[in-house]
Structures are given as structure tokens and as C-alpha cells.
Amino acid sequence: MQQRAHDVAASVTDPEMPMLTLEDLGVLRGVEVTDEKVTVTITPTYSGCPAMATMRDDLVHRLQDDGFGDVEVRVSLSPAWSTDWITPRGRRALTDHGLSAPGPAPSHAGPVPLSLLPRRRALTCPRCGSAEVELTSEFGPTACKALYRCAACLEPFEHVKEI
């Protein structure tokens, strides 16, 4: 039961990036089965991520479709979600679908240093592989993405930004 509930929950995909499962995204933090009741724990990616509601609904529906009548989705705010939690399989799936996967999340002891120059990332274009890319904006179509442009193939692409 435990394994089956976990497998079902782990197969639910992110509504914004459907090539990623919630497990690959690192949002799925736990699946517990006690007395026929399934408790799923998830951690929000961004404080205001509007996809959280859909993730919850999808988890409940998929588990109910699989015969689990009583499903509760709980939120775990701590530790905070980090892009470091995206699995290697998730990173491959992002690249396979034309998205640039995040590098290591920034870490610092003490105050967050101010950065007045655009953040430098060693990226390659997910379409043509060129390293000649330029940042268009740190803010993209969803909270988790930055916008880039490839100087070689001239295509724009999205980068899942490190947090």
C-alpha cells in the first residue's frame, strides 16, 4: 500500500512543466499510509507559486482514482525548497524539452551580498548547445524561470533559476 501510494504520488507531474514529476521537481517530500488514509507532504517552490493548488488537486485526484479514498495533502515550509532538490532525471527532462536546468543554488555565510552585475551562469543553449548565451531577464513566464537568448542559433530559451 505504502509503495503503491508513493508510486502514484510520484508520477503526478508539475502543471507548468509537465515533463517533470513532482518527485523529480523535489516538491514531493513524503507519502505516508496509515489506516487506509494517505498523507502526502509537499513543499512549495515559490511563496506565491499559483501551481500549488493544482498540484494538490492533482495529487488528491490521482490517488483517489487509484482507490485511496482518504487523501490529505499537507504543506511543509521548512526546509525551504531549493533547485538543488531537482533530481538528475528531472534535469535531463528539462534539457530534453528545451529548458535550461539550474546550476547549484547560491549559498553564503552572513549577509546576502549585493550584486550589481547580471548574475553569471555557465549555461549552454538547450537547443544548439552553444555557450554564447545572454541573459534577457531574471524574471520569466513563471516564478521559477529566467529568460535567455542564444547568440548562435538566435533562439530564446528559459532557464530554471537557482534558489
Binding site: R56, D57, E72, V73, R74, V75, S76, L77
Partner: peptide, 11 residues
């Protein structure tokens, strides 16, 4: 609208 479930469910 967006989901009206308790944003602190389980916290």
C-alpha cells in the same frame, strides 16, 4: 480563483 485551502495545512 486560486485555491482557498489553508496555506498552512499541516504546519
Amino acid at each position: 480563483g486560486t485555491d482557498f485551502e489553508d496555506p498552512l495545512a499541516g504546519v
